[in-house]
Amino acid sequence: MSSLSRSDVANLARLARIDMSDSELDALSGELDVILNAVARVQEVARPDIEATSHPLPLKNVYRPDVVQPSLSNAEALSGAPASEDERFRVPQILGEEA
């Protein structure tokens, strides 16, 4: 049973794109250890010969006819955006200054 260190949790927070405070990281690493210990029980019965279920319905690919359908207008699609410009989503800088 692996245990989660504070730096493990900081790395997970970075991967999940959440800028967590130090106090949150401290609290969370303790809590996650307890939760992980409890949920690790699944390993007791998960034998190699058991198939995994990812979904309750036995669905494969579901297609619709390849016909153009009405969709949101440009204005509707942008209506909830934090910022927009020239009928586009305006986002903060993605590449570094030198790029």
Partner: peptide, 15 residues
């Protein structure tokens, strides 16, 4: 495999 994979197998057992 140890976590999500095992949980999916438990899902099969419950079904």
């Amino acid at each position: 495999d140890a976590y999500y994979g095992s949980a999916q197998k438990v899902r099969t057992l419950i079904t």
